[in-house]
Amino acid sequence: MAMRPRVLSWPGPLSALRPVLRHWSESFFFDEVPMLRITQALAMVQNAILALSAMALFALPLITAYDVTLRYLFHAPTIWATEISIYLLQFAVFMTPGALLADGNHLRVSFWIETRTGLTRRIAETVTALAILPYAAILIWFGTSYTLRAFDRGMLSPTLLQVPLWIAYALIPLGGALLVLGVVLKSLTLWGEQDKAEARA
């Protein structure tokens, strides 16, 4: 099962790498404070997306019940219930993978990685997070061209609602961008907590 990154102990042989990595993180971020701020800002964005998605998904049963009631009792179903529900679902599914990644909520096969400890574990966790970047890049690049195409041609949904399709399509590249932020946030958390632990030590 997915797990939250936690403060891990340093293993013997790999501890040689420790000063190098510490130097890297220091020289890149100069010190702990701005890094913490970045982490907090990223976490806030992801939490806001998660809250919006929760509202979107909570609306689904309400919309469904409303539509069923209108159809069954008044023989007058809405023309929008199903279509709007699908957009709400797309929002929740395409926009949240980054937030789930940062929180360690994605399901994964963890029998190998959970036998690792210390720096190996951290490196492994970082590599599995970075491995996602090519997928995020595909979502951003091809999702953007797909969205722009729909925008340029003024494409509308083939329903009575006639919703501009670029709005729905844009969720894919936006979700890809949030996924990149999720990778960044997860990496910062992984390496940032160690810095705090060292600062305390």
Binding site: P97, E114, T128, I132
Partner: peptide, 18 residues
Amino acid sequence: GCLVAGVPIAFSLGLAGA
């Protein structure tokens, strides 16, 4: 490779597809 390394299943599938 992705699954065993512990990459989330969702992205392991997507990466293999890509």
